[in-house]
Design a binder for these strands. Structure first.
Lengths: 152, 152
DNA sequence: CTTGATGCAAAGGGTTTGCAGCATT
DNA sequence: AATGCTGCAAACCCTTTGCATCAAG
Protein backbone atom coordinates (compact mmCIF):
# COMPACT_ATOMS: atom_id res chain seq x y z
CA UNK A 1 0.00 0.00 0.00
CA UNK A 2 2.26 2.75 1.20
CA UNK A 3 4.70 3.64 -1.49
CA UNK A 4 7.69 3.22 0.77
CA UNK A 5 8.07 0.64 3.48
CA UNK A 6 7.58 2.23 6.84
CA UNK A 7 5.02 4.68 5.49
CA UNK A 8 1.72 4.31 7.31
CA UNK A 9 -1.30 3.24 5.30
CA UNK A 10 -3.22 6.04 3.72
CA UNK A 11 -6.43 4.17 4.27
CA UNK A 12 -6.49 0.49 5.05
CA UNK A 13 -10.28 0.25 4.94
CA UNK A 14 -10.49 1.79 1.48
CA UNK A 15 -7.73 -0.45 0.23
CA UNK A 16 -9.63 -3.48 1.52
CA UNK A 17 -12.86 -2.48 -0.22
CA UNK A 18 -10.99 -1.73 -3.42
CA UNK A 19 -9.80 -5.29 -3.30
CA UNK A 20 -13.27 -6.66 -2.71
CA UNK A 21 -12.77 -7.40 0.97
CA UNK A 22 -14.87 -6.42 3.95
CA UNK A 23 -13.27 -3.70 6.01
CA UNK A 24 -13.71 -4.98 9.53
CA UNK A 25 -11.95 -3.71 12.59
CA UNK A 26 -9.53 -6.63 12.77
CA UNK A 27 -8.75 -6.65 9.08
CA UNK A 28 -7.85 -3.00 8.90
CA UNK A 29 -5.57 -3.50 11.90
CA UNK A 30 -3.85 -6.45 10.22
CA UNK A 31 -3.38 -4.53 6.99
CA UNK A 32 -1.99 -1.57 8.86
CA UNK A 33 0.55 -3.77 10.64
CA UNK A 34 1.66 -5.45 7.43
CA UNK A 35 1.78 -2.16 5.60
CA UNK A 36 3.96 -0.34 8.07
CA UNK A 37 6.47 -3.13 8.61
CA UNK A 38 9.74 -3.00 6.74
CA UNK A 39 10.35 -6.70 7.28
CA UNK A 40 8.26 -9.84 6.81
CA UNK A 41 6.32 -10.85 9.91
CA UNK A 42 5.25 -14.18 11.39
CA UNK A 43 1.59 -14.72 12.20
CA UNK A 44 2.56 -14.46 15.86
CA UNK A 45 4.23 -11.08 15.20
CA UNK A 46 1.10 -9.80 13.54
CA UNK A 47 -1.18 -11.18 16.22
CA UNK A 48 0.91 -9.61 18.95
CA UNK A 49 0.39 -6.21 17.38
CA UNK A 50 -3.33 -6.52 16.77
CA UNK A 51 -4.36 -8.45 19.87
CA UNK A 52 -4.64 -5.19 21.79
CA UNK A 53 -7.54 -4.37 19.48
CA UNK A 54 -9.17 -7.67 20.35
CA UNK A 55 -8.24 -9.44 17.14
CA UNK A 56 -7.93 -13.20 17.54
CA UNK A 57 -5.10 -15.34 16.25
CA UNK A 58 -7.51 -17.36 14.12
CA UNK A 59 -8.57 -14.17 12.39
CA UNK A 60 -4.95 -13.31 11.64
CA UNK A 61 -4.39 -16.80 10.29
CA UNK A 62 -7.48 -16.81 8.11
CA UNK A 63 -7.21 -13.29 6.83
CA UNK A 64 -3.53 -13.54 5.94
CA UNK A 65 -4.36 -16.73 4.04
CA UNK A 66 -7.02 -14.84 2.11
CA UNK A 67 -4.58 -12.05 1.29
CA UNK A 68 -2.13 -14.63 0.03
CA UNK A 69 -4.69 -16.33 -2.17
CA UNK A 70 -5.42 -12.92 -3.67
CA UNK A 71 -1.68 -12.39 -4.04
CA UNK A 72 -1.81 -9.20 -2.04
CA UNK A 73 0.58 -10.71 0.45
CA UNK A 74 3.64 -12.82 -0.21
CA UNK A 75 4.67 -15.77 1.93
CA UNK A 76 8.37 -15.95 2.75
CA UNK A 77 10.25 -19.01 4.05
CA UNK A 78 12.58 -17.39 6.54
CA UNK A 79 16.12 -18.65 6.90
CA UNK A 80 15.47 -19.77 10.49
CA UNK A 81 12.61 -21.99 9.40
CA UNK A 82 9.76 -19.68 10.34
CA UNK A 83 7.17 -18.62 7.81
CA UNK A 84 6.74 -14.91 7.36
CA UNK A 85 4.41 -12.66 5.44
CA UNK A 86 5.01 -9.50 3.54
CA UNK A 87 2.56 -7.15 1.84
CA UNK A 88 3.04 -6.50 -1.86
CA UNK A 89 3.26 -2.83 -2.50
CA UNK A 90 1.03 -1.17 -5.04
CA UNK A 91 3.77 -0.75 -7.60
CA UNK A 92 4.11 -4.52 -7.81
CA UNK A 93 7.61 -4.35 -6.45
CA UNK A 94 7.82 -7.16 -3.97
CA UNK A 95 11.33 -8.14 -3.29
CA UNK A 96 12.20 -10.06 -0.23
CA UNK A 97 15.90 -9.67 0.10
CA UNK A 98 17.26 -9.36 3.57
CA UNK A 99 20.42 -9.32 5.54
CA UNK A 100 19.95 -11.06 8.86
CA UNK A 101 22.30 -11.02 11.84
CA UNK A 102 22.75 -14.52 13.21
CA UNK A 103 23.51 -13.13 16.64
CA UNK A 104 20.97 -10.40 17.34
CA UNK A 105 18.50 -11.39 14.60
CA UNK A 106 18.30 -7.86 13.32
CA UNK A 107 16.90 -7.70 9.80
CA UNK A 108 18.01 -5.17 7.20
CA UNK A 109 16.32 -4.96 3.83
CA UNK A 110 18.57 -5.01 0.76
CA UNK A 111 17.44 -2.84 -2.09
CA UNK A 112 19.64 -4.09 -4.85
CA UNK A 113 18.81 -7.22 -6.68
CA UNK A 114 21.57 -9.13 -8.40
CA UNK A 115 19.34 -12.07 -9.08
CA UNK A 116 17.04 -10.57 -11.66
CA UNK A 117 19.43 -10.84 -14.55
CA UNK A 118 20.28 -14.36 -13.47
CA UNK A 119 16.60 -15.17 -13.38
CA UNK A 120 16.22 -14.16 -17.02
CA UNK A 121 19.17 -16.32 -17.94
CA UNK A 122 17.77 -19.36 -16.15
CA UNK A 123 14.36 -18.77 -17.70
CA UNK A 124 15.90 -18.89 -21.15
CA UNK A 125 18.18 -21.81 -20.47
CA UNK A 126 15.63 -24.04 -18.84
CA UNK A 127 12.36 -22.83 -20.29
CA UNK A 128 10.72 -21.87 -17.00
CA UNK A 129 8.07 -19.17 -16.88
CA UNK A 130 6.82 -16.95 -14.07
CA UNK A 131 10.10 -16.98 -12.23
CA UNK A 132 10.21 -15.64 -8.74
CA UNK A 133 13.00 -15.74 -6.23
CA UNK A 134 13.80 -15.56 -2.58
CA UNK A 135 17.20 -14.54 -1.30
CA UNK A 136 18.40 -14.13 2.23
CA UNK A 137 21.89 -13.40 3.46
CA UNK A 138 22.90 -14.10 7.02
CA UNK A 139 26.02 -13.08 8.85
CA UNK A 140 27.20 -11.30 11.97
CA UNK A 141 26.53 -7.60 12.07
CA UNK A 142 29.16 -5.04 13.10
CA UNK A 143 27.58 -4.52 16.53
CA UNK A 144 27.63 -8.21 17.32
CA UNK A 145 31.26 -8.52 16.32
CA UNK A 146 32.16 -6.35 19.31
CA UNK A 147 32.28 -8.82 22.17
CA UNK A 148 29.84 -8.77 25.08
CA UNK A 149 27.12 -6.72 23.58
CA UNK A 150 23.56 -7.79 23.11
CA UNK A 151 20.69 -6.30 21.25
CA UNK A 152 17.03 -7.14 20.78
CA UNK B 1 30.61 -37.49 1.03
CA UNK B 2 30.31 -38.55 -2.58
CA UNK B 3 32.07 -36.07 -4.79
CA UNK B 4 29.08 -35.60 -7.05
CA UNK B 5 25.48 -35.51 -5.95
CA UNK B 6 23.79 -38.75 -6.80
CA UNK B 7 26.96 -40.74 -6.31
CA UNK B 8 26.43 -43.43 -3.69
CA UNK B 9 28.51 -43.26 -0.54
CA UNK B 10 31.80 -45.02 -0.73
CA UNK B 11 31.50 -46.01 2.88
CA UNK B 12 29.05 -44.37 5.21
CA UNK B 13 30.29 -46.25 8.27
CA UNK B 14 33.89 -45.14 7.72
CA UNK B 15 32.79 -41.59 7.14
CA UNK B 16 30.89 -41.66 10.41
CA UNK B 17 33.85 -42.95 12.40
CA UNK B 18 36.15 -40.43 10.75
CA UNK B 19 33.85 -37.77 12.10
CA UNK B 20 33.84 -39.24 15.57
CA UNK B 21 30.38 -40.75 15.36
CA UNK B 22 29.22 -44.27 16.11
CA UNK B 23 28.43 -46.22 12.99
CA UNK B 24 25.15 -47.85 13.85
CA UNK B 25 22.76 -49.46 11.44
CA UNK B 26 20.31 -46.56 11.42
CA UNK B 27 22.97 -43.90 11.15
CA UNK B 28 24.65 -45.42 8.14
CA UNK B 29 21.26 -45.69 6.47
CA UNK B 30 20.51 -42.03 7.16
CA UNK B 31 23.89 -40.94 5.86
CA UNK B 32 23.43 -43.01 2.73
CA UNK B 33 20.06 -41.42 2.04
CA UNK B 34 21.39 -37.89 2.55
CA UNK B 35 24.47 -38.62 0.52
CA UNK B 36 22.69 -39.96 -2.53
CA UNK B 37 20.02 -37.29 -2.71
CA UNK B 38 20.48 -34.42 -5.13
CA UNK B 39 17.96 -32.28 -3.28
CA UNK B 40 17.43 -31.35 0.37
CA UNK B 41 15.09 -33.69 2.23
CA UNK B 42 12.59 -33.26 5.02
CA UNK B 43 12.89 -35.44 8.11
CA UNK B 44 9.80 -37.27 6.89
CA UNK B 45 11.48 -37.91 3.52
CA UNK B 46 14.50 -39.38 5.23
CA UNK B 47 12.45 -41.44 7.63
CA UNK B 48 10.37 -42.83 4.80
CA UNK B 49 13.52 -44.13 3.16
CA UNK B 50 15.09 -45.63 6.26
CA UNK B 51 12.01 -46.96 8.04
CA UNK B 52 12.26 -50.16 6.02
CA UNK B 53 15.48 -50.84 7.90
CA UNK B 54 13.69 -50.35 11.19
CA UNK B 55 14.99 -46.87 11.86
CA UNK B 56 12.69 -44.76 14.01
CA UNK B 57 11.64 -41.19 13.30
CA UNK B 58 13.13 -40.04 16.61
CA UNK B 59 16.47 -41.44 15.51
CA UNK B 60 16.28 -39.51 12.27
CA UNK B 61 15.38 -36.37 14.18
CA UNK B 62 18.16 -36.75 16.74
CA UNK B 63 20.87 -37.85 14.39
CA UNK B 64 20.20 -35.16 11.80
CA UNK B 65 20.37 -32.63 14.63
CA UNK B 66 23.77 -34.01 15.61
CA UNK B 67 25.00 -33.79 12.03
CA UNK B 68 23.85 -30.19 11.92
CA UNK B 69 25.61 -29.31 15.15
CA UNK B 70 28.77 -30.77 13.66
CA UNK B 71 28.08 -28.79 10.50
CA UNK B 72 28.16 -31.92 8.39
CA UNK B 73 24.60 -31.25 7.32
CA UNK B 74 23.03 -27.94 6.40
CA UNK B 75 19.50 -26.96 7.32
CA UNK B 76 17.51 -25.30 4.54
CA UNK B 77 14.30 -23.28 4.95
CA UNK B 78 12.39 -24.40 1.90
CA UNK B 79 10.26 -21.97 -0.06
CA UNK B 80 7.06 -23.87 0.83
CA UNK B 81 7.73 -23.47 4.54
CA UNK B 82 9.11 -26.93 5.17
CA UNK B 83 12.53 -27.47 6.72
CA UNK B 84 14.93 -29.57 4.70
CA UNK B 85 18.36 -31.03 5.23
CA UNK B 86 21.29 -31.37 2.91
CA UNK B 87 24.65 -33.05 3.42
CA UNK B 88 27.75 -30.93 2.97
CA UNK B 89 30.06 -32.55 0.51
CA UNK B 90 33.65 -33.27 1.41
CA UNK B 91 35.03 -30.44 -0.68
CA UNK B 92 33.20 -27.95 1.49
CA UNK B 93 31.06 -26.88 -1.42
CA UNK B 94 27.60 -26.55 0.03
CA UNK B 95 25.42 -24.43 -2.10
CA UNK B 96 21.73 -24.71 -1.80
CA UNK B 97 20.40 -23.11 -4.91
CA UNK B 98 17.40 -24.64 -6.51
CA UNK B 99 14.86 -24.11 -9.19
CA UNK B 100 11.48 -25.35 -8.06
CA UNK B 101 8.40 -25.87 -10.22
CA UNK B 102 5.37 -24.37 -8.55
CA UNK B 103 3.11 -26.84 -10.33
CA UNK B 104 4.75 -30.25 -10.10
CA UNK B 105 7.17 -29.37 -7.28
CA UNK B 106 10.09 -30.78 -9.19
CA UNK B 107 13.43 -29.55 -7.85
CA UNK B 108 16.46 -28.86 -10.05
CA UNK B 109 19.79 -27.89 -8.53
CA UNK B 110 21.47 -24.80 -9.93
CA UNK B 111 25.23 -24.95 -10.11
CA UNK B 112 26.11 -21.38 -10.75
CA UNK B 113 26.17 -18.87 -8.01
CA UNK B 114 25.69 -15.23 -8.84
CA UNK B 115 25.37 -14.25 -5.24
CA UNK B 116 28.92 -14.78 -4.09
CA UNK B 117 30.32 -11.61 -5.54
CA UNK B 118 27.34 -9.70 -4.21
CA UNK B 119 27.98 -11.20 -0.80
CA UNK B 120 31.50 -9.77 -0.76
CA UNK B 121 30.17 -6.39 -1.73
CA UNK B 122 27.55 -6.39 1.04
CA UNK B 123 30.13 -7.58 3.55
CA UNK B 124 32.30 -4.57 2.73
CA UNK B 125 29.48 -2.06 2.58
CA UNK B 126 27.79 -3.06 5.81
CA UNK B 127 30.59 -4.62 7.81
CA UNK B 128 29.04 -8.04 8.23
CA UNK B 129 31.22 -11.11 8.70
CA UNK B 130 30.61 -14.79 8.08
CA UNK B 131 28.12 -14.20 5.33
CA UNK B 132 26.06 -17.08 4.09
CA UNK B 133 23.15 -17.07 1.71
CA UNK B 134 20.09 -18.93 0.67
CA UNK B 135 18.54 -18.57 -2.76
CA UNK B 136 15.59 -20.34 -4.27
CA UNK B 137 13.94 -19.67 -7.59
CA UNK B 138 10.43 -20.85 -8.33
CA UNK B 139 8.55 -20.87 -11.59
CA UNK B 140 6.62 -23.14 -13.89
CA UNK B 141 8.68 -25.78 -15.67
CA UNK B 142 8.36 -26.51 -19.39
CA UNK B 143 6.39 -29.71 -18.78
CA UNK B 144 3.84 -27.96 -16.65
CA UNK B 145 3.35 -25.22 -19.20
CA UNK B 146 1.82 -27.78 -21.53
CA UNK B 147 -1.81 -27.89 -20.45
CA UNK B 148 -3.41 -30.94 -18.84
CA UNK B 149 -0.35 -32.76 -17.77
CA UNK B 150 0.48 -33.72 -14.25
CA UNK B 151 3.58 -35.04 -12.64
CA UNK B 152 4.50 -36.07 -9.13
C1' DC C 1 31.69 -54.08 30.15
C1' DT C 2 30.59 -49.11 29.58
C1' DT C 3 28.68 -45.59 27.22
C1' DG C 4 25.93 -43.85 24.22
C1' DA C 5 22.12 -44.82 20.62
C1' DT C 6 17.53 -46.56 19.86
C1' DG C 7 12.43 -47.44 20.01
C1' DC C 8 8.35 -46.33 21.98
C1' DA C 9 5.21 -43.27 23.59
C1' DA C 10 3.90 -39.08 25.46
C1' DA C 11 4.44 -34.06 25.68
C1' DG C 12 4.88 -29.72 23.38
C1' DG C 13 4.05 -26.00 20.14
C1' DG C 14 2.41 -24.03 16.24
C1' DT C 15 -1.28 -24.45 12.72
C1' DT C 16 -5.92 -25.31 11.18
C1' DT C 17 -10.91 -26.02 11.60
C1' DG C 18 -16.04 -26.15 13.39
C1' DC C 19 -19.47 -23.69 15.16
C1' DA C 20 -22.54 -20.34 17.09
C1' DG C 21 -22.88 -15.36 17.67
C1' DC C 22 -21.94 -10.81 15.74
C1' DA C 23 -20.65 -6.96 12.59
C1' DT C 24 -20.60 -5.13 7.98
C1' DT C 25 -22.83 -4.17 3.91
C1' DA D 1 -31.99 -8.49 7.08
C1' DA D 2 -28.46 -11.43 4.93
C1' DT D 3 -23.94 -12.71 4.41
C1' DG D 4 -19.77 -13.49 5.78
C1' DC D 5 -16.36 -12.52 9.66
C1' DT D 6 -15.02 -13.35 14.37
C1' DG D 7 -13.87 -15.48 18.88
C1' DC D 8 -13.48 -19.55 21.26
C1' DA D 9 -12.01 -24.01 21.77
C1' DA D 10 -10.90 -28.30 20.08
C1' DA D 11 -8.42 -31.03 16.65
C1' DC D 12 -4.29 -31.76 14.08
C1' DC D 13 0.22 -32.46 12.84
C1' DC D 14 4.92 -31.95 13.13
C1' DT D 15 8.66 -31.53 16.45
C1' DT D 16 10.89 -32.68 20.65
C1' DT D 17 11.82 -35.25 24.96
C1' DG D 18 11.95 -39.09 28.78
C1' DC D 19 12.96 -43.47 29.78
C1' DA D 20 14.04 -48.26 29.73
C1' DT D 21 16.43 -51.33 26.60
C1' DC D 22 19.93 -52.51 23.34
C1' DA D 23 24.24 -52.40 20.68
C1' DA D 24 28.86 -50.44 19.35
C1' DG D 25 33.39 -49.87 20.67
Amino acid sequence: MGTKPGTPAIDAATWLRENGLRATHGRTAIVRVLDTSTVPLTLADIHEKVSAEGCDFATVFRFVSILEEKELVQRVAWIDGSTRHEIRSRDGHHHHHYLICRTCHKVEPIDECVVERFEDQIAKERGYTGLNHSLQLSGVCPDCQKPAKKKR
